[in-house]
């Protein structure tokens, strides 16, 4: 028996899916095709129609030290912020799962950061970490210029890592909490009867059983930190100082819209897109058939 819904009226069916298709085409396929077009062509210096240049744009970015810098910076950023957001989220979720005092309120509050747009997060952290007026200014009074993200590359990196992890932590937290709560209580109780304390139980029972969730979040976090970090960088560091926070996605924007080099920007976005497709593939391939116990 055919279990799919079938429509006799094809026009109605078409009309129902049209808005969705339209959205996907206008905001996804069309820009992708445009990017492909730009990536393989270049605009003559004095105007006129684009000329087909084949792989030239790609050759150019791959031989550009500035581009490789942005790749390096992006990888550092992805690694640090994924590690930080996942470990913090895990810690918070483990504590909430223990039902310590006030856990209901915290559980509710911890999700909020994810609802905040990246530029707003960036703005908040820009103020918090402002060397002269923010919380950190107290440290600077004791040791002048110990902290200055406007001058020091690593400070700027730390700033965007913290801002991004703060936001992603909320997302990770929900997944960890859900996964923790789906671990049968009996397992924890059995471990307690076996003489295992709180920390030992987290290490021996809970975290191993979270492995599938952990892997899923790793992929999601890395992907997110590659593609969704623009807002934070733009507001806090603007890619600086000295390109120390010039993430790939930010460089696409600054090359394209500040430098007005659409072809270079398009080629870079194609590279980024392939990267994300690769990560998504990994996710589907391994997360879908992840280890199932039980």
């Amino acid at each position: 028996m055919d279990r799919r819904a079938s429509f006799d009226n094809l026009w109605l069916a078409g009309a129902l899916v049209a808005p969705q298709i339209l959205l996907v085409v206008v905001f996804f396929y069309w820009p992708t095709l445009q990017a492909l077009y730009w990536a393989f062509s270049t605009q003559p210096p004095f105007g006129g129609t684009n000329q087909w240049v084949g792989w030239q744009n790609f050759q150019q970015i791959f031989t550009d030290a500035v581009y490789w810098n942005s790749v390096r910076v992006s990888i550092i950023f992805a690694t640090l912020s994924t590690a930080l957001s996942i470990s913090m989220a895990l810690l918070l979720a483990l504590m909430i799962d223990r039902q310590l005092a006030g856990h209901k309120a915290y559980r509710f509050v911890y999700f909020w950061p994810y609802a905040i747009a990246a530029p707003a997060v960036g703005l908040a952290f820009r103020f918090i970490f402002a060397p002269d007026a923010g919380f950190v200014s107290a440290i600077n009074q004791l040791a002048p210029n110990l902290w200055n993200p406007a001058l020091k590359g690593w400070d700027a990196m730390i700033l965007i890592v913290i801002a991004n992890s703060w936001k992603m932590m909320a997302y990770n937290f929900i997944f960890f909490l859900a996964a923790l709560q789906s671990i049968p209580r009996g397992l924890i109780e059995a471990a307690a009867m076996d003489g295992s304390g709180v920390l030992r139980r987290a290490r021996d029972i809970q975290i191993p059983l979270l492995a599938p969730t952990l892997f899923f979040l790793l992929v999601i976090n890395i992907t997110e930190s590659f593609v969704d970090s623009f807002g934070i960088v733009d507001i806090t560091t603007g890619g600086g100082p000295a390109r120390a926070t010039d993430l790939m996605v930010f460089k696409i924007y600054s090359d394209g819209f500040k430098g007005l080099d659409y072809s270079m920007a398009a080629a870079q976005s194609i590279v980024l897109m392939l990267l994300v497709i690769g990560l998504t593939f990994v996710q589907f391939r391994y997360v879908e058939k992840r280890v199932h116990y039980a």
Partner: peptide, 29 residues
């Protein structure tokens, strides 16, 4: 705490650690 009471318990749904082998389950304590 449970571990200070010297009791062992067999649960209705066994509550075996799914990620450990039989030997590891038995030997965990």
């Amino acid at each position: 705490e449970p571990r200070e009471r010297g009791c062992a318990m067999v649960f209705q749904n066994y509550a075996l650690y799914p990620h450990m082998t039989v030997a590891e389950n038995i030997g965990y304590a």
